[in-house]
Every structure is written in C-alpha cells, then in structure tokens.
Nucleic acid binder design. Structure first.
Lengths: 215, 215
DNA sequence: CTTGACTCAGAACACATGTTCGTGTATAAT
DNA sequence: ATTATACACGAACATGTGTTCTGAGTCAAG
C-alpha cells in the first residue's frame, strides 16, 4: 500500500480515466478504450501500465476477462463507503409549472450519484434541475440540482416545494403552519414571507438537499 | 413503477445472478457466464432475455460492448460505483476572516463523501462550512458547505473566494478581470457587482461546488 | 562505453464475447 | 386450421479484447 514514488503522469491519467469511465458507464473500460483516452496507440503499453498499477495495489485485474479490472479500495482518495445511490434527474423545474415526474422515464444518463452518508433515506427521492432564476429567493439559482422526497405533507421548518393553486406557481419555501394560514418563508432572510390559505397550497415534496456545480 | 406482468422465473434468476456477480466482481458478467449460471446453453437465449429485461427497464445495455450492461436505478440497493472520495471539512468560514486551513488537522469525523463523478478533480480540494448569512449575495446561506480548490489565480467566470485586503473581508463572487480593475459579480443576478483594485484582492481558491443539506 | 532497469510502439495471435439466423415448441387468439 | 406471440435451441459469424513477441528509446549505475 505504501507507494513512495509518485505515479507516472501516464498512470495518473489512466487512473483518472478509469475513475471517470466507471462513473459514467458503471463498467470498466477495455484496454483499447483506455489507450485511446490517454493517447497510447499500443495495447501492450496500456497493459504494461495496468500491470504496474496492479503491482502498486491501485487496482486488481481478472486474467483473460474483458474489462476485468476494478479499482482497489485503498487507492488514494478512494475510501470504501457505505454505498452509493443513484438518483434519477426527473426533469427541469421552473416556477411556472407544477412538478411533474415522468414515472416511466428512466434516462440512465441523467442521474446523480450521492454517497449514502449524505442522504440517509432514499425512498421516493428524486432530483430536479432548476431552470431559470425564479427561485433566487430560496437561495437556489439557475442550474442548481434540488434533491427532494415526494410527499404531500410537511412539518414546520421543512423546506418544501409548494404548488400555489391560485398563482399557478411552484415555489421553494420554508413551511410553517399557523392557526389560520400557512406561512411560506423564503430562505433568504432579507425577504418577507408570504401567507396563503391552506386550501390553496399543494405540497409537492420536501427538499432534502441543494447542490450547485460550478464549471 | 410499470411492471404489469411478473418476471419470468428465468429472468428473475438472471437478475439475481447479475446482482450477485456485480457484488462479487464489481464488473458485469458476460452473456455466457449468465447462461452457465442460470442453466442456459445458448447465448442467444440469454441475449433474448436480456433484451426483454432491458425493455422492461430493469437494466440497460451497450451495444457490441462486452459486459456492457448495468442494472437500472430501479432498486436502490447499493451498487458498486466509480469510487468515493473523502474531503475534509477544514473549518468554518465567515465573512470577517481570511480562509485558514489547518493543514495538519485532519479530523476524520468532519469530512464529506462525494462520488467521483461529481467531482472529477480532487487535488488541493477542501470543504468549508459557511457560518452566518454574510454570503447571501453569493446564493450561499448559513450552514452551506462550499467545496473549493486552493489556488491563487482565477479565470474570468470562475467563482472564487476572494480576500479583500482593504475591507478585511472574505467574499464569494464571480471573478472578471477588466482593464484596470477587477469586477466581482454576485451570483444573485439582482445585485450589483463591486469593483476593486487588483492589488487589493487575494484569490484564496475557486469554488467547485456548493452543497446544502436540509434537516 | 556497456549494462540493465524502465518505458514505449507496433503487430500478430488466440480466444472471449456479442450478434444473427434458421428452426422448433408451446399457448392463445382469430 | 391458421396466425400471432412469447420463448427456446444450436450453430455460425464478426469482432471486441487480453496476451505475447520483437524491437527500440531513455537514463542512471558500473
């Protein structure tokens, strides 16, 4: 496990590519795919470097099995974990539309992977990508990914996606039930809450997480 | 979801075997391996049933790629993945202080796990937890976790953590270099940029990701 | 200079593996 | 009976893919 010497630039690139490929395809790349990605014309060179990496314990291989390689758990920056869950990105969300999850649509490409410790529960969980700046008062900006659990009730303090029937509008706000009305509080503390009739609100789900990726 | 008819016994067995195989080997089985395990002599029969399973959305396949199949996100059971990286949470960050990363301190407990596909690069990456509402103009709220890479240069359009020497203030803004000044643009499009003397700005790092967990 | 590691390129080889085609057998609907 | 559909079998095919061999370049040690 102890690797005094640094990885060669090429081997670093191979490791990176395998990681990336594995993340995208869920199965390991072939020798030739690695070669093309890293800029190696010969399969034997890739094979050679893979053997190197295997000796160092960075990965393990199955002989004579196509794509028969796996990253080791003790590779740098990699830690065995409680598991990874894959959440489908159901679709874009904008302020002017109700949230609609196409149940049958499983676009395998559009999914997001989260570690289990980040999201303990995973029942009825889905992700939406925000389109537009309509939710800046919820501290959610264009392109953000909102991970939520589908549910139709809310408890005080929950951040929920609420459909306001009289305004034809979906909004992300903190939910507070008051005696005769419902207070929807923006996440931005400088903005004022809105008050609505309980009959005019449909809870679409509870926001569990907001994730923003930058370039 | 949409599974009117029950799976045939054979297809059930195939699914079970794929799950088991994937758990043991971390890469998918070949058609012939599936056949042998389930008791099918012909590869075409396996292929046929795989196509059936694919139509039902239980798995997806890559054409003409050996072992090019993956289970769908149907079952949120743990699925092996490209790897998980652990990022230490260096410390709290507030507007009134420069960012200080205690290099030696690696509190194993305070770390965040991300899947590799979410964060391709991982050199000099660390995480900070935001304290206070001083960064609402960056669409970052109290408690948010900011993941950034330590660097002292920035390119136009990067979101950076900048230390304004004359104001004694750390701020998260989009970075734009203009002829004689630097424009720091808030993420919130309704707010105005600030302009500063290039000599009065120290780039602390580039923001890669913002993550907000809600109860 | 010579030697021997370490790394690389190219080509040929062997076989692992996905694909396809023709055929056969049920069961149910027409 | 006929047709349609779902499922199964075996064999041949095309190619994806790991393996191996020959040769060569680099670089530090003897």
């Amino acid at each position: 496990m102890a690797s005094r010497k640094p990885l060669s630039l090429r081997q670093e690139g191979i490791m990176d590519f395998i990681r990336k490929y594995l993340g995208e395809n869920r199965f390991p790349p072939s020798i030739r795919e690695i070669g093309k990605a890293v800029g190696i014309s010969s399969t034997s060179v890739v094979n050679y470097n893979l053997r190197r990496l295997e000796e160092r314990g960075y990965l393990s291989r199955e002989k004579e099995v196509s794509r028969g390689l796996r990253l080791s758990a003790n590779a740098p920056d990699l830690v065995p974990s409680g598991g990874v869950l894959r959440i489908p990105i159901a679709g874009p969300i904008a302020a002017g539309e109700p949230i609609d999850i196409g149940e049958g649509v499983f676009d395998e490409e559009d999914a997001i992977e989260l570690t289990h410790d980040l999201l303990p529960q995973h029942d009825n969980v889905y992700a939406l990508q925000v389109r537009g700046d309509s939710m800046i008062d919820a501290m959610v900006s264009d392109g953000d990914i909102v991970i939520m659990r589908q549910q139709h009730e809310a408890r005080n303090g929950d951040m929920v996606a609420a459909w306001l029937t009289d305004r034809d509008e979906t909004t992300l706000k903190y939910f507070f039930k008051e005696p005769d009305r419902i207070r929807l509080q923006p996440a931005n503390p400088t903005m004022d809450p809105i008050y609505v009739d309980p009959a005019a609100v449909q809870i679409q789900g509870k926001v569990l997480m907001v994730l923003r990726r930058l370039s």
